[in-house]
Simulated scan of single mutants.
Amino acid sequence: MFFIQGLIIGFSWSAPIGMQNIYMFNNAVSNPRWRALAANFFVWLADVLLSLTAFFGIGLIMAKYQLLKVLIMLLGGMLVIWIGFLIVRSAREVDLGTQAVSKPMTKLISGAFMVTWANPQAIIDGTMMLGASKAVLPNVMSEFYFMLGVAMASAIWNFSMTMLLSNARAKLSSRFMFRVNLISGLVILAYGIRLIIKGLLISLKMV
């Protein structure tokens, strides 16, 4: 039962479109399948580590220290804007099937952790979602099965989407990928701006 609960929460956590899913999409259609799956393993690992961190209460620290929350949102927002700018700037450079040759695996790995951990809203939302679930779990074993379900949901979502998109990459044109990257970058830019505005609004309330 607790495992099923974790699966449901995990899919709710993984499925919404955000920086991580955009990154996974771009990797799947721009890289050979083995490389996309290898990079996606680190996306999944970063996601599980963030889920565990949120589950065990990083949000409690941010709730107690509002200034820390503001700093994380402002700095994270600036980093998100920078990521969005890089995606927009490189949108025309996408060449299906060759992009992975020029991008080292170290960059794919660092990118996986960046799009996951450089997202303050994901930390906050994850804490609310997973932290609330932890509060009603009766014991350590129930917590274990619950988080196992969360991790399994993340794996199912990430790897199935990577395989699906990787199979479809032969049918995608470079023009289509340019549009996808441009829109993705603009969405992330807007998201970063929104984070900074929210951080500023919170800071004004603290004055």
Rank of each mutant, 00 (worst) to 15 (best):
S14M: 08
S133A: 13
D125T: 10
M1R: 14
K64C: 03
D95W: 04
G126M: 10
M147C: 07
M78Y: 04
M128S: 13
L68K: 11
N139M: 11
V115F: 00
K134I: 02
I183F: 04
K69N: 05
G77V: 03
M105L: 08
N31P: 12
S184T: 05
M24H: 00
T106M: 06
F159H: 02
F146Y: 03
I188P: 14
A168W: 06
I202E: 09
G10P: 10
M78D: 01
Q121D: 10
L137V: 11
V207N: 07
S174T: 14
S12M: 15
L68M: 15
N158E: 07
M152F: 13
G199P: 09
R35G: 09
L60Y: 08
I22Y: 03
A153Y: 00
A135N: 15
M152I: 12
A38C: 08
L74G: 06
V80E: 00
A132M: 10
G18W: 11
W13S: 00
Y191C: 06
I4Y: 09
P16Y: 07
R89K: 10
N40P: 14
V80P: 00
M105V: 04
I9F: 09
M163L: 15
R194W: 15
D125W: 10
L130K: 06
N119M: 07
S102H: 09
V29H: 03
A190N: 14
F113A: 04
G10Y: 09
M177E: 06
I183W: 01
F85R: 04
I81M: 07
F146R: 02
V80S: 00
P32V: 10
S110G: 13
